[in-house]
Design a protein around this nucleic acid. Structure first.
Lengths: 135, 135
DNA sequence: CAGTATCCGGGAGGATACTG
DNA sequence: CAGTATCCTCCCGGATACTG
């Protein structure tokens, strides 16, 4: 994030909107990593209705590559949003499910989805006007 | 995200969590662009308490480069989150302020900030456990 | 003061092939 | 079925220098 090559690193903090925000170790940045990635949010939404297996998720999200499907699942599992369960059948099947943390985050995500739907037209309009007047 | 510069693109839609999500023209993706960018969210939070001028913002967010400060402001202005007002003094001064849309989005952002604070420890813990057991 | 203009490295993410 | 392993491309964002 920042090289700060040579600094003692005394946990620099800036005040924004009445909030102490750490530049070096920011909770919001951590969460934004999960909301900002291309597939993370969609993945959590895809598990909203219940556990799904790898190939089910692949069909649910046709545009994702195996590589990104695997990586997204691993990242979300790592941060505790979802749990991975292996059933030792043959061939093996693996199930992914939201954890309590993931379900809690899902609420936030639904607010975001709702807000997006309500204001998308407004955003598109602003963009159009800006682009017309701009160049 | 998508140029839309030539394809008929019959608006492919997938159903997730009871929601119709367009792959080609997704409201959530548009908003996630603003929440996901490295500086966008922080910029909106920085304008929460009132209008700020360019150099004020630079001091508020010491780690940002001029380039990214300019670009972040332009992107957010383009999408209608903030308004830019030029005062023809000399040297000129420029003021940035949240629009109603920006203030509406700010509420969402504050939920995100609150949630992040409340669950950061949990996330860090999950991460630690995963990394230990992993390799 | 409030920006452009360039150059550049690193990482996110896509495509493809292979495996237990 | 549920993944690894590679390779490659694009573009985000940092550094630096210049300007009205």
């Amino acid at each position: 994030m920042n090289t700060t090559a040579g600094k003692p690193e005394g946990s620099r903090v800036i005040m924004i909107d009445g909030l102490a925000i750490s530049v070096d170790d920011c909770p919001v940045r951590d969460v934004l990593g999960s909301v900002g990635g291309k597939w993370n949010s969609l993945m959590i939404l895809s598990l909203a209705e219940g556990p799904r297996r790898f190939s089910q998720l692949r069909r649910l999200i046709p545009d994702i590559s195996q590589r990104m499907l695997t990586q997204t699942l691993r990242d979300l599992q790592r941060d505790g949003y979802l749990a991975r369960t292996v059933f030792p059948t043959k061939p093996p099947s693996v199930e992914y499910a939201l954890t309590p943390l993931g379900r809690s985050f899902l609420e936030l995500l639904r607010s975001l989805v709702r807000w997006s739907g309500e204001h998308h037209a407004e955003i598109r309009a602003a963009r159009r006007i800006f682009d017309e007047n701009g160049v």
